[in-house]
Design a protein around this nucleic acid. Structure first.
Lengths: 154, 154
DNA sequence: CGGCAAAAGTGGCATATGCCACTAATTGAA
DNA sequence: TTCAATTAGTGGCATATGCCACTTTTGCCG
């Protein structure tokens, strides 16, 4: 447990972030295990829940995820009857998403377990620190990063 | 909690972390694009590079990733000739990993582009802040989190 | 109005990751 | 030495995500 953490690797912001994401993801996944939902699916249901019948593009933007990735991620949730989609009344290109009653119930169920996990985490890290970390992560996520050579375009 | 700001979601440490990871991952992926490597693959090559012919289990532990996931992740790198494996001399269960000359060359090539991305990031965030963030993420990754009910009485 | 660019999704293909069930190789007793 | 328990990986299955090539709708412009 020593030679593996040589300097250099932990310098990569991206690698460090992914590593933490794998670690924390597992914890939340375990916590939500009894519900049969992955932490990512829980997050998706919650995002839909707090939005008002959002269009797929809106969800993708909010979560900073690829639209097609969103579509793929939604499939299991639709298959399991937690989520349903319907065409927008004014723009037939737009597909809106909403929770089914079953999905709402599952979310409620998951929220209980999520709260426990969340509390566990904040007990270890400190609510204050956790909030700061989330703020920092949101800031990073919202950065407008561009590679030098590719920057000038539009 | 202001209902208007749709609280809750951004309160989830895990969801926030994943969102940031998607965002930053895309940036590093773009940066490494010309090399044909994903940021995850770059990280893997680097990890192998800084280790001394590590066993798969050692890599998995260092990166906090599932051993089988590591195996899967390694396949494309082996297929493309960047990495090779060989059995440990003393314990035939153990499979060690090393970069091929081709893999070493690819890593060198990628390091140049990675440096640019890394610099871009630190220019935006500040090297100081970036270091703090990485430290915080490492701390989170190394937390010993356990769900109350599931915690074995020890 | 006709045609073309932009916007919103879909599907296919590929990598990233996890869990579980197994197999092979070791180790630690009895 | 023999056998159960442990350790290290593998393979299969499922979800998570991205990119690219299309298809369908719109929106806009001459």
């Amino acid at each position: 447990m020593t030679e593996a953490r040589k300097p250099g690797f932990s310098d990569c912001n991206n690698a460090t972030l992914r590593r933490a994401a794998r670690s924390l993801g597992r914890f939340y996944d375990d916590a939500l295990g009894p519900t049969g939902l992955k932490s990512t699916q829980f997050g998706m249901l919650f995002q839909i829940h707090i939005s008002d019948e959002p269009a797929m593009g809106a969800i993708a933007e909010a979560l900073i995820m690829d639209l097609s990735a969103l579509g793929h991620t939604l499939k299991p949730l639709i298959r399991d009857g937690y989520v349903e989609t319907f065409a927008d009344k004014d723009d037939r290109r737009v597909k809106r998403v909403r929770l089914t009653p079953r999905g709402q119930a599952k979310l409620d169920e998951a929220l209980k377990l999520w709260s426990i996990a969340q509390r566990q985490f904040e007990e270890k890290v400190g609510a204050e620190q956790a909030a700061k970390l989330r703020a920092a992560l949101d800031a990073v996520a919202d950065l407008d990063l561009e590679m030098p050579a590719a920057a000038p375009s539009n």
